[in-house]
Write a protein that binds this DNA or RNA. Sequence first.
DNA 1: CCAAAAGTGTTAAAGCTACACCCATGT
DNA 2: ACATGGGTGTAGCTTTAACACTTTTGG
Lengths: 250, 250
Amino acid sequence: MHKNELMEQRESKDYLSQLTLDCVILGFNEGELKVLLLRWKETQEWSLPGGPILQSESIDAAAYRILKERTGLNDIFLKQFHTFGEQPRYNLAEIQEKLKHLIDPEIWYKRAVTIGYYALVDYAKVSPQPDELTVECKWWDIKEIPQLLFDHNHIIQLALQALQIEINLQPIGYNLLPEKFTMPELQRLYETILDRKLDPRNFYKKIISLGILTRLKERRKGVSHKAPYLYKFDKAAYEAKLKEGGLSFL
Amino acid sequence: MHKNELMEQRESKDYLSQLTLDCVILGFNEGELKVLLLRWKETQEWSLPGGPILQSESIDAAAYRILKERTGLNDIFLKQFHTFGEQPRYNLAEIQEKLKHLIDPEIWYKRAVTIGYYALVDYAKVSPQPDELTVECKWWDIKEIPQLLFDHNHIIQLALQALQIEINLQPIGYNLLPEKFTMPELQRLYETILDRKLDPRNFYKKIISLGILTRLKERRKGVSHKAPYLYKFDKAAYEAKLKEGGLSFL
DNA sequence: CCAAAAGTGTTAAAGCTACACCCATGT
DNA sequence: ACATGGGTGTAGCTTTAACACTTTTGG
């Protein structure tokens, strides 16, 4: 997409004007939470994946579309968490300056409201794809995120808060871990999201007592210590529990 | 405001287009939760208060503005809970037909996204005010809400769900009750929001243990049974607790 | 005096926290 | 053999749930 095309898009009647959507796409790898970020062409500036909403699609559909475009994945855990409508939301002049080689400063909306979604994905299954205005799409460790464009640091912060609440209501690991995983891996995921240490014995008891995990006979190999058991989620048991309403975690 | 003025408003550059805001204004009276609804001129059709957002104001400011216009109150507990962007959200043709004597069917957006807020107010302090397109603004018992225009029944339903979660994190009663209230009144408020009966002894112990209430020497008079004590919130203690992070309810 | 709702304490069960040692694996 | 992290049980404490009778007031 070139300048003219983008201009057409912004002014097009095919899209909602002044309303966009941003996705905080979260994965888990090497014991850390990761976010998928995009680097804009000919810059060192990063931002969240996002974009405008088609007149013909629901906002959830727009989020799924963006997710599919950046990750290649369908059928993802996706949740709207907040709509950002401060006035101003960020320093527009700064954005116009930083991206003027890509986007005519004239065509930025003076104001845009954005709907924030977060997605939980299996890190290993994602093939990050930049879009028309960016050259690089890659995972960043949640603790090492640089200064981002727009108000995207703030958006990520609220997404993580929303996730801390959600972890008490959903077996988040189901979406963030590969099919088979070890108990310490699951524990580290919870520790990262909740940002505190958990006791391994208590964690084990609590997770097992939910009755939604199956321990496999396999163990993880190739580690220089005792080989941990592998587990997987028992989807049927999980959905049965959910219906009873009886799912609440840590 | 007449047809032409409304037309100008819809098409005006002073407002965001295709993005509106709706407020679920909740009060508590006679042991029941109430919502403030508006009846449209020359109809029996009811809807939530809401409207478009000025280019110059944040979405929170727009919500406060609408609230102020309908209730006369400033400084209200207000919380964004969800943004509604289904496509379609409701049957537009039906709305056009029902309101054609007020609004030219041509000027409805083919599509609008709305941001949902709920507000918690002291029932007794509100003086309900209709707006330019409505003749009546009044409280409805939450259990007796009629079929509303747009997707407003759905919006109310989600607001109540959000409130059920929020009640665990905030001393909701502070906003919904008058300055002085009795323990049974507070209990009935919790029972109504959570939609289940609570044990009065356990409720009393739990609330008192939070240490944010002061029992007054006064009692409520004029009831044909034992006179209950009055309590009020100890705002200082409440804010101290909140800072410690140690506030979690029922 | 009757009807209505307020006020109050104890006990049992469940859930949570804290805590330490031996085991299996790769180098 | 050593370093690394895995796997596991118990006891005390806190929190929650269940439960019933007496009191006060107005009519």
